[in-house]
């Protein structure tokens, strides 16, 4: 399920996201943050070709991001949940 209310803060190369729905914080390290930023309508293949990493690792990260509600896949395209930056 996509998050409904999320705030995000970028610190250097890490991102922290507040999931207000569940009252939890999520830390995206450099790698996860990079994948997450590419979730702007890109397909899995497009993301794989844009980052340095094995396809398996990219797919694994996308799955984790989806499980936490940070992204969802619509018609093969990855979309970030709406985020408000602080």
């Amino acid at each position: 399920m996509p998050l409904h209310k999320a705030l995000a803060a970028a610190f250097e190369d890490e991102i922290v996201i507040l999931d207000s729905d569940h009252g939890s914080l999520l830390l995206l390290d450099t790698w996860a943050g990079q994948i997450w930023r590419f979730c702007d309508g890109s397909t899995t293949e497009a993301i794989e070709s844009s980052v340095n990493g094995t396809p398996g690792r990219v797919r694994e990260t996308l799955q984790v991001l989806m499980d936490t509600g940070l992204v969802c896949q619509i018609n093969g395209e990855w979309i970030r949940s709406p985020i408000e930056w602080v």
Partner: peptide, 25 residues
Amino acid sequence: RAALLLALAQHVSSFKQRHRLPQAF
């Protein structure tokens, strides 16, 4: 800073007050 923010959220702080979560963040 990201790791410290997570650590602060684990402590007794304004993060523990649900209605103040966005404000605390």
